[in-house]
Design a protein around this nucleic acid. Structure first.
Lengths: 223, 223
DNA sequence: TTAAAATTTTAGATTTGTCTAAAAATATTT
DNA sequence: AAATATTTTTAGACAAATCTAAAATTTTAA
């Protein structure tokens, strides 16, 4: 059962809306996709016919398991392509969305599996968002080591991997504490140190050793 | 002026037909695209309106310069994607066509330019067909050194780069002469020797040095 | 050179995805 | 709780790309 590009766009949008809202409304989909409410209603009928969602007139709707499975497969494709565009073709991370929106509709499991392998089965895309695997499982982004945190993404310091007073005093000297927001701005290959921005203002340098002991979780979702 | 996927498929098909026929007929396009003659007529009107072809009712048609430019851009995309699929994602060369048919319709010059660079600005695709550059210029495949000839493609030996009797006696020992058909079947990295098939039957091994002196041109086109 | 055959075009219908305008249902407010 | 506002759905239309069947044109051949 392949889907059209239009169907896939609706499926993906509904999935993302129901993550935060639970139940989804016609208008919210319409404004996200920048289309009319009437068009959304039309598409809902088709998707209901294909047994992808639970929907009753005037009552709101949400994807069922089949629909969620489809959505995860599309999101997988989108995020793998974004990873390809940034890591391999050296697009800037804010230039990839439009192209990935097209690439995600290419129909070929073989293509996606090969791409996944070529990229080294990445767990997170360049925006820091988790990439579902072929079975639809998403790695939960609880916390991730600062050394593996994507560039220019704002996260929150959520744990420190050691309680040594030497380390804690260094942290306070750099004005870093649990709950601080942090983003990695630059990586220096020579000594593997990184420049990070704390609380959106202060720029400090962090050694590789310190970074290895800081765990961060992503804050605001994008893409 | 972006084209729809359907328009692009017609443009590409007409281009390839007019290369051999000069003038193109409705039926030839219909059978190539496995559609009805009526559909072709409909599309011809649209393409004429967009000033891509010279067409008068019942008289046959062909792409004008604008149309050829469009066709070359599509062929460029198709062949670059095929190169990517085979060289980078390790598809077999006979598995790529269907996927490349989809990928060629992705709209992004930036994407194609980056892909071209990433692949090292290849001149020929895995089938041995020439890849147009960004301005639409195609390298003419006159003859190409055997060491650069694509795998599993049948070519014709068209010149030998030396007249030394040592070399010519070696060639006749291996039953290779001007006009023999030849295809490269395997490359051995250790000594850079290659196994080739001569006249579709005899398999012989050729040293790197000998291969460097053999020039071959591709025989039968495939896409 | 006219009759038959083949090709091409037109006419009218269908599917997909979209739209606007109006009607129906639900929600909000006084 | 009635009036008003908002949301959602329906009705009818349109553009793109396709189809079949019939008409128009060109080609072939008797």
């Amino acid at each position: 059962m392949p889907f059209t590009a239009a169907e896939e766009n609706y499926i993906k949008t509904i999935f993302q809306l129901q993550l935060v809202e639970g139940m989804v409304s016609t208008n919210s989909v319409a404004s996200t996709l920048e289309t009319s409410a009437a068009s959304v209603t039309d598409m809902l009928k088709k998707l209901k016919l294909k047994k992808l969602l639970v929907y009753e007139k005037y009552k709101g709707f949400k994807l069922n398991n089949e629909g969620k499975k489809a959505a995860l497969s599309i999101i997988r494709k989108h995020r793998l392509w974004e990873t390809f565009l940034v890591n391999i073709l050296h697009f800037k991370w804010d230039e990839v969305h439009e192209v990935a929106e097209q690439l995600e509709h290419i129909q070929s499991n073989q293509l996606i599996d090969h791409l996944d392998n070529f990229l080294g089965n990445p767990q997170f895309d360049p925006h820091g968002d988790p990439i579902p695997d072929a079975t639809g499982k998403m790695p939960v982004m609880t916390q991730i080591n600062l050394t593996k945190f994507p560039l220019h993404i704002v996260g929150e310091v959520c744990s420190v991997g050691s309680q040594s007073s030497d380390m804690l005093s260094l942290l306070s000297h750099k004005q870093i504490e649990i709950g601080s927001t942090i983003s990695v701005e630059q990586f220096f290959a020579f000594d593997e140190s990184i420049d990070v921005k704390i609380n959106n203002t202060l720029m400090v340098n962090i050694s590789a050793k310190l970074a290895q002991h800081l765990y961060v979780k992503k804050l605001n979702y994008a893409s």
